[in-house]
């Protein structure tokens, strides 16, 4: 097995992880500040992808599409927060799960109503649709490289936002003591809407970036949502740092597992059985990872009890 292949796969894992991070960051922020489980977060991912595809088709510009995805997802997030989510903060997790499950149904079917059942067309921008040669003779798709860079930039931007701005200060205060910041005269309702909209916008951005690689279709958000949940549970709910490390861990485990396990089984099984077993185990691997982490650290890697 050539070293360059392993490095390429590790890059793939990193790119996958960075995408999950954009989803997980919003989820974990929303949970940390408002204590809300949001199953409908995958719907913002889908909203972003559809907004980007529709705008790019109308204007021919992928960049305008990205802007539209951020705006549409943030708007959808703010709208949903004001209309529904706001009433759920005081409820238990069970009510939150059910209400946001209902929102998934409404979002998915509503999108299908608007755009129809066929997948939409969204392509990687022409300038990025090629491979580049990395040091060490590794050929790698340029677009995926750009996605990694964008994701890492967003992660640092988020860190700056939370640790260096007034909004970030309020978010941190909200995480540690909700009543207190309300008593200090901070507009708590506005803060919550802002946090929710930021989380939704990040999910929308992820949807648009991934949408160019995949197909833009109804239901595309839910598989990513489940992965994002796995990530934030591994990282510790409420921790942005945990979400980043968890995302990369999950991305690498999944990609390398899918690639290495069948060959590993091939050492002592015949090829077709090895592929079948290896693929089966690989698809369960991240859930096994999550279970193992929780058994040893019931509050995740960076969670507080």
């Amino acid at each position: 097995m050539p070293v360059s292949l392993v490095i390429e796969q590790a890059l793939n894992g990193l790119q996958f992880g960075v995408m999950i991070f954009l989803m997980a960051a919003g989820l974990t922020l929303i949970f940390g500040v408002m204590g809300l489980i949001n199953l409908a977060h995958g719907s913002f991912f889908m909203t972003g992808a559809f907004a980007c595809a529709a705008t790019a088709a109308a204007t021919g510009s992928f960049l305008l599409g990205l802007a539209a995805s951020l705006a549409a997802a943030a708007a959808a997030g703010a709208l949903v927060e004001v209309a529904v989510i706001r009433r759920l903060y005081a409820r238990d997790h069970l009510d939150q799960v059910l209400a946001t499950f209902a929102l998934i149904l409404i979002f998915s079917e509503g999108t299908r109503w608007l755009f129809g059942s066929f997948p939409l067309y969204l392509d990687v921008p022409q300038a990025l649709a090629r491979g580049v040669m990395l040091p060490g003779g590794i050929q790698y798709p340029l677009y995926r490289l750009v996605v990694i860079v964008v994701g890492l930039c967003v992660a640092s931007g988020l860190w700056l936002l939370i640790h260096r701005t007034r909004l970030g200060m309020r978010i941190r205060a909200g995480e540690s003591d909700r009543e207190m910041i309300a008593a200090l005269g901070v507009n708590i309702a506005g803060l919550y809407t802002a946090v929710f909209a930021i989380g939704a916008a990040l999910a929308g951005l992820a949807g648009a970036l991934v949408g160019a690689l995949q197909s833009v279709q109804v239901g595309m958000g839910e598989p990513v949502l489940i992965l994002a949940f796995v990530v934030i549970v591994i990282g510790g709910i409420g921790s942005i740092r945990g979400a980043l490390i968890g995302s990369i861990l999950v991305g690498l485990t999944d990609t390398l597992g899918r690639f290495l396990l069948p060959s590993a089984f091939g050492l002592f099984l015949d090829p077709s059985a090895a592929t079948a077993f290896g693929s089966a185990l690989a698809s369960m691997l991240i859930y096994i990872l999550m279970a193992v982490v929780l058994i040893f650290r019931p509050n995740g890697l960076f969670g507080v009890a």
Binding site: F31, I37, H93, V97, I226, F229, V230, V233, I237, A276, S279, A280, S283, M284, Y287, I288, M290, A291, L294, I295, P298, N299, G300, G303
Partner: peptide
């Protein structure tokens, strides 16, 4: 061993394992 959201999610993870096992 876990509580709250973690419990919700770990039960989900185990069910997903069973699901992928059954598919493959």
């Amino acid at each position: 061993r876990t509580r709250g959201v973690y419990f919700i999610m770990i039960t989900l993870a185990f069910a997903q394992m069973a699901y992928y096992f059954a598919i493959s």
